[in-house]
Write a protein that binds this DNA or RNA. Sequence first.
DNA 1: CTCCGTTGTTAAATCGGATTAGCAAGTTGC
DNA 2: GCAACTTGCTAATCCGATTTAACAACGGAG
Lengths: 344, 344
Amino acid sequence: MSERRVTMADVARRAGVSPTTASFALSGRTDMRISDASRERVLEAARELGYRPNVTARSLRTKSTQTIGFVSDRITTTPFAGDVIRGALEAARERDHLLFITEAGGDRAAESSMVHALLDRQVDAVIYASMFTRHITPPKELYGQRVVLLNCLAPGFDAPSVVPDEVEAGRDAARALLAAGHTEGIWSIGGHQAVPATPEGIIAGNERMRGLEEVLRAGGARLDGVVECDWDTRDGYREVAALLAAGHRPRALVCLTDRVSFGAYQALGEAGLSVPGDVSVVSFDDQDIASVLRPALTTLKLPHYQLGRLAVELILGEGPLEAVVHRVPMPLQERASIGTPAEG
Amino acid sequence: MSERRVTMADVARRAGVSPTTASFALSGRTDMRISDASRERVLEAARELGYRPNVTARSLRTKSTQTIGFVSDRITTTPFAGDVIRGALEAARERDHLLFITEAGGDRAAESSMVHALLDRQVDAVIYASMFTRHITPPKELYGQRVVLLNCLAPGFDAPSVVPDEVEAGRDAARALLAAGHTEGIWSIGGHQAVPATPEGIIAGNERMRGLEEVLRAGGARLDGVVECDWDTRDGYREVAALLAAGHRPRALVCLTDRVSFGAYQALGEAGLSVPGDVSVVSFDDQDIASVLRPALTTLKLPHYQLGRLAVELILGEGPLEAVVHRVPMPLQERASIGTPAEG
DNA sequence: CTCCGTTGTTAAATCGGATTAGCAAGTTGC
DNA sequence: GCAACTTGCTAATCCGATTTAACAACGGAG
């Protein structure tokens, strides 16, 4: 970028040794014999000159750039982004790696071109991430490369996946309700089937519902009803309002995502029902609004940070990557929206 | 990462020319004469072999890596992140550049080490970003480098800054209220002075208030009161509740940020006042909640995407960078929280 | 027929390190 | 006293491009 950097040759010259000796002294390798005196002089010279190795030059020879590529469909416009990247960033930093972040916006051609751009720069590995848990087909350029799939699954593609443990989260939601004494009047809002507008619901929704129903059943409880709707605030509001208008009187709502919970809050509020006095609410995701709602929402947190971190830890681990699915726990954020069942 | 890549030497061999000829043919330079026949053969060979240049190797010679470093204090845990990065990413992609994203968490030492890691990889330029508009002192490693400051100012540091036009946003907030007929009972919540917990308020708060008061005054209106508080939902709720409890009856609230507006909504709701029927609300930032609140919040949007995009456009522009402050407009998101003044 | 200027192409150097092969000088073994 | 090792260090290559310097072949001018 500007004034000439200090090179290893400069260091060698100052230390009065050959570049070869300087190289070995600096890399601290023990398989090549360097006297303590020479090593000291080289290190001293490097310190005095403020020498820093040129990673680009080194990479040309070693093939390792200490760099990871991160390809996602859309890292922004979704709460997913920040924490995943932060987790990946921190894990990478601990291992002296840097991250190339790219976003393809769901465009296959763009995706291929991004992967090419990464491979052209000799990245050591690539993290392929999806904003919602789903099945994907990696771009062909990724076949044969060192890859970890983040928040997505690709059966038949030889790479590990890192995804949230949705089934267990569903179980935990059930356990939280049971623990508070809820066994009747439990409704789920958001459903487990994908509706056209929310394909992202396919995996997360199904698995959450599976865990939820399993534990409720085992605990002698069951769902009074399953309301299918889009995973957004508007639909949450509308469906809960409709539910109440139809004369139902739920004691507990399991909302499949926080946005739906927010809508449910609005509908309950307008109907004069209080949370958790009249109705308990348990939710999933732990988006920003969850802690800011009144009362604060009890929800199962998507472990974004951990997903990002684990993906990097796996990818920078030793040895070949195994095509295993790693399920990361979704911790329960206990706040104020679950109470004991209302009388009546 | 895996099987040997096709090199330029492979292409040259196949085309039956020297690597030199292949290089010139592929780079399409006209200052070196290559016959059309040779050029065609080289291009054909490259196509057949699926040749892609090794950017790392090229960079060693040319010093240009087609890569930009992005250093921020904290890109996550703030709505700031996503869109800024998306803007930067898209602008970079249009110019065939890739972005190294790093985050230092406000730690000076970490910041220096991140900048080193970037410079060691020969990045062409560095974007130094802050999550809130503020004055900063860039790490010394950045002096003499090609830098653009994003969402921050560093007087005395020779680099352009890209920041939101807060003063004009304040003016626009005032214009929106005046246009709806508001001239009395206008209060601002959030204040213009920094309170300890929100140093980020210093610049944004002051400038927004300056623009706001300037236009209100010019329009024959004024603020009935300025409430100072932290820029969060809790404080917004508490201060507006207190305001109402004290017997005040505002007709319009200018909340300095959406989180404060959300708190204000809650307090107004509990007091039985409707938005915008009884009280109009205009806000700043356009965070996620803004469009999801009921009624949807009219707010001045922080131009995150544009900030990121402009930073990259400047940095990849021709010629030296000038230490100019670029102010990016904050567009008014007209939604449903401003009405005509209540009778009263 | 020689000199000069084009034209098209290539050998060789370069970028900044990592790595391999080899070379002196000093030790040890017998 | 001489081969066989060690020890400590360096010359030379290599990585995959870009770029400089030079060179052969040809055509036109004088």
